[in-house]
Design a protein around this nucleic acid. Structure first.
Lengths: 332, 332
DNA sequence: CACCTCTCTTGTATCGGTAAAAATCATCAT
DNA sequence: ATGATGATTTTTACCGATACAAGAGAGGTG
């Protein structure tokens, strides 16, 4: 495979000039550039990222660390990130963290040494303290609010949850369960829960704590389990707000399995708008954030940080959203 | 960040000896190894993959090229590949090809230059001819049968489809539609279709061609569209074999939306066993290949190829499978 | 015409590892 | 004691790119 020196020889210039052309540096005569480009095309030359990285940093690869790429939401996110990065000539390496703090930290630590220029981290386990010291291009997506310290693109957690629950209330539900939150310090769940509470507050209602059922994970299994637990408790309910669509999918399955009619007996809404939600039976109504916006914004922010730019406050960007009303809710 | 030379100095040996320790090469005295390891730990030294790659190839990163990681099956596959690779100290870079031949070829071509030691390719678009000349560690997964040329880990396409359709026949279906195949040269669809035909043949039946509805993609949308088309045709049917679970999810939605009862009026089976299938309503019966086996095998094969080993024939490894019988089929 | 400036181009050193060959050392047979 | 043998370690060079500093031309100026 051709090296920069082969190109230089073919074009009758020095390797450095080829490098200058490759990196769009000024002070290269148009005619020289032409010659070089022709030689590059002729030899089908590609830069060797290892060599470039060794000398200058910059590999053209970014990292994406998510809890589990098999989960629909992260698959969708990853897909958009890969595409957005691709449009900018970047490739993406995926890490899976299982939402565990140490694995998230490991991903961050490794990145510094890895062939990676920066990292997009879907942070669930780490805390602000863990990340404060990181001197490394890092952009957070979704989940926890750590935006005081680092640039972050997040979901419209509170606002979206509020809108969803408000819709349930507007269509007649009065006892609305909330499923799937591991409610803790400033996490996604607590923000969505805040939206749930605010919707109630706005309507002059106070939700029954017996209707809040946490779940280990935000996955389908967790949703099914949480719904089963809700049924077991025996507290009456006529609406369910699920922290994620995956939870909603599992919960819907469990509720229908228990003989409840959705949406006649129980309305249900999810959050995330993954493809499967649209094709559930009935189709799941959900908060639909703009996944492409999130991915695109995260990549752009990361690119700017890699370029050394200090991002101006406010550092938190919230995705726009819409309410996708489908078969698990009644018409207003 | 510490370099190999810092470690060498700290341990009082040469850089080369440190390198020998790092790479588990023979002829290093136990005592020396100790000293070096202590120095490594003390300085928290990590090899710089760029430098290693530049000199010797080997980056510790492999590529995974799939059509679209947002599709549940590929998300599951990617998740297992990332884990299997992680167990061996390898990282994974994901490419998306949209199942397009040129993007698949691009992924292969790039790999050679990328910071990647080898590539696992989920080939849909490329042909044997495209890949014949590739002199590069490459392992194929699923889909097309190209195993004459390259090592491949594939789904139990024909056998699984046969078993699934045989079950439909055994439980009373007589007019079984097949949804979602882009039937072409030796592709996955034609293998699964062969299984469908063989099940019919074994039962002394001949399937009605009017019941075969192709689909552009194997996604959820494609399944919904294909099912709609099937209904439009008006040919009676009492069973549906879907090429993938994604197709099954979409089809199930469309069929139920049209007022059919599943499984009473129509039985339905999918293929892949993605998580969402289990939690559909009713839960989708499906052919369940061993995803972990596929990922693990692909990574192991790739690792051996990277090590320079010539893999012995037979080069095609087929995943074991089971039939996951759930709510969309009747009891035998 | 000498001298300066500005643009364009090129040597040289270097990033952090590893391959290959050479050097050192301990052990042992002669 | 001498050379041979094999184990262990070091020296040297280089992978392919880029940073930096310095060189070469072209045009302008006094």
């Amino acid at each position: 495979m051709a090296t920069i020196h082969d190109v230089a020889k073919a074009a009758g210039v020095s390797a450095m000039t080829v490098s200058n052309v490759l990196n769009d540096r000024p002070h290269v005569r148009a005619e020289t550039r032409e010659k070089v480009l022709r030689a590059i095309a002729e030899l089908d030359y590609r830069v060797n990222p290892a060599a470039r990285r060794l000398r200058s940093s910059r590999t053209g690869t970014i990292g994406l660390a998510v809890p589990d790429i098999a989960q629909p939401y992260f698959g969708v996110l990853a897909s958009h990130v890969v595409e957005a990065a691709g449009r900018r000539g970047l490739r993406v390496t995926v890490e899976q963290t299982s939402a565990a703090r140490d694995r998230e930290l490991e991903a961050v630590a490794l990145s510094r040494r890895l062939m990676i220029d920066g990292l997009i981290l879907s942070a669930l386990g780490v805390s602000v303290d863990d990340l404060r010291a990181i001197d490394y291009p890092l952009v957070l997506v979704g989940e926890k609010d750590l935006a005081d310290e680092l640039p972050q693109v997040s979901m419209p957690n509170e606002e979206g949850a509020r809108a969803a629950v408000a819709h349930l209330l507007a269509t007649g539900s009065r006892r609305i369960a909330v499923l799937g939150g591991i409610v803790e310090d400033g996490g996604m769940a607590s923000e969505r829960l805040a939206g749930y509470r605010r919707a109630h507050g706005d309507a002059g209602l106070v939700p029954d704590p017996a209707l809040a059922v946490p779940a280990e994970r935000y996955g389908i299994e967790g949703g099914a389990t949480a719904a089963a637990e809700l049924l077991r408790r025996g507290a009456p309910f006529d609406g369910v707000f699920c922290m994620t669509d995956a939870v909603a999918l599992g919960a819907l399955h469990a509720l229908i399995g228990a003989g409840l009619r959705v949406p006649e007996d129980v309305q249900l809404v999810g959050f995330d708008d993954v493809p499967a939600a649209r094709y559930a039976n009935p189709a799941i109504s959900t908060v639909s954030p703009d996944h492409e916006f999130i991915a695109e914004t995260a990549v752009v922010l990361l690119e700017r940080r890699i370029a050394g730019e200090q991002l101006p406050a406010p550092r938190r960007t919230v995705s726009p959203f819409s309410l996708a009303l489908r078969g698990t809710t009644r018409r207003a």
